[in-house]
């Protein structure tokens, strides 16, 4: 049971028996369920799951239905992480006392949260879990907005994005504050493993998730989750937007080991200009008006700077 599941290629991966069910109420083309499936299918071990309030939670547990085939708890906005940390602590205590009924099974503890639950509301709780170094994984489904409640800005919303509480118009260009660097913050917790993933790079994703499961201690995963409703693109384009996010380096894929060693795991062969990423989404539509065009240039500079920073960190190994 505790052996790592062998996933060499997609055909082998496709023999997995899903533990997440369809007929959930997520929007057509939602990337959340793609990410959840890739995470759950990366292991054959038992799972102890939680989801903080957000699209994923409310859409997969609509009474009288549940879409989860593993033990899963529906809990508050802020404490998905601590609920799983509590279960993990109990598991450890029972193990020490020799009271586990099936000691040969090695459950994996995973908490899911949206960016609202992770970057804003549950931030303190996650920080606590990471600091106490529970043997668990926290997965952020980062769609850069409070999509469940109607598209309010979160601290993950990037500059220039039009959200319902930061609407773009003749006076404002939308969100004015840059996205919180959650990966950097989690790196500063000096946790054993933190990684940024994207659903379109399934192999990179599965590799990182398996590495996370094999790691003893807290693991933080930040997954970009294109939101068809709030990013305003056609449902069929979910994977295209995710491709653009990784290829424009808006979402660079990298990992941080022990808070020091940065490894960039995906270097696009052809880096796409950020303009294409912005143009593909309705939430950035206003940036192409003459008065806001300077923001596109700023976007590109910011992304380039971040990419250069990551490369410097990777090289310096500090």
């Amino acid at each position: 049971m505790s052996e790592m599941k062998k996933i060499k290629n997609l055909k082998e991966f496709s023999t997995s028996a899903d533990r997440f069910e369809g007929a959930n109420l997520l929007c057509p083309g939602c990337a959340h369920s793609i990410i959840v499936r890739e995470v759950l299918n990366a292991t054959n071990d038992d799972l102890v799951l939680a989801a903080s309030t957000g699209c994923l939670e409310v859409c997969t547990a609509v009474y009288p239905y549940t879409s989860w085939d593993a033990s899963w708890i529906h809990i508050g906005f802020e404490n998905g992480s601590t609920a799983v940390a509590g279960a993990e602590t109990m598991y450890k205590a029972l193990k020490t006392k020799g009271r586990l009924k099936q000691p040969d099974r090695t459950p994996k503890f995973v908490a899911f949260g949206g960016d609202g639950a992770s970057y804003d509301i549950g931030f303190q709780w996650i920080s606590g879990c990471m600091e106490r170094n529970h043997d668990m994984m926290y997965v952020v489904l980062d769609n850069e907005v409070y999509a469940n409640t109607g598209g309010q800005r979160s601290s993950s919303t990037p500059i220039g994005s039009s959200a319902t509480t930061t609407p773009a118009g003749s006076i404002s260009y939308g969100e004015k504050i840059n996205k919180k660097d959650m990966m950097g913050i989690m790196g500063a917790h000096h946790i054993p493993y933190a990684a940024q993933v994207a659903p379109n790079k399934w192999k990179d994703m599965v590799k990182k998730i398996q590495k996370g499961f094999a790691t003893e201690g807290a693991v933080f995963i930040n997954a970009v989750s294109p939101c068809t409703t709030e990013w305003k693109f056609d449902p069929k384009d979910t994977m295209h937007i995710a491709d653009l996010a990784t290829d424009t380096l808006v979402f660079p894929l990298y990992e941080i080991i022990d808070g020091r060693q940065y490894n960039i795991t995906y270097r696009p062969k052809n880096v796409v200009p950020v303009e294409e990423y912005l143009a593909a989404q309705g939430r950035f539509k206003h940036l192409f008006k003459d008065q806001y065009k300077y923001l596109i240039k700023e976007w590109q500079e910011r992304v380039d700077e971040n990419w250069a920073y990551l490369q410097r960190r990777e090289e310096a190994k500090v």
Partner: peptide
């Protein structure tokens, strides 16, 4: 792998068909 609704039925590494009860037509 990219179906958001677990609607692509694959068995023994072969694509078998589509689960029309769970497909949302994205």
């Amino acid at each position: 792998v990219y179906c958001p609704d677990v609607s692509i039925v694959s068995r023994d590494k072969k694509m078998v068909g589509i689960d029309m009860d769970h497909c949302k037509g994205c």
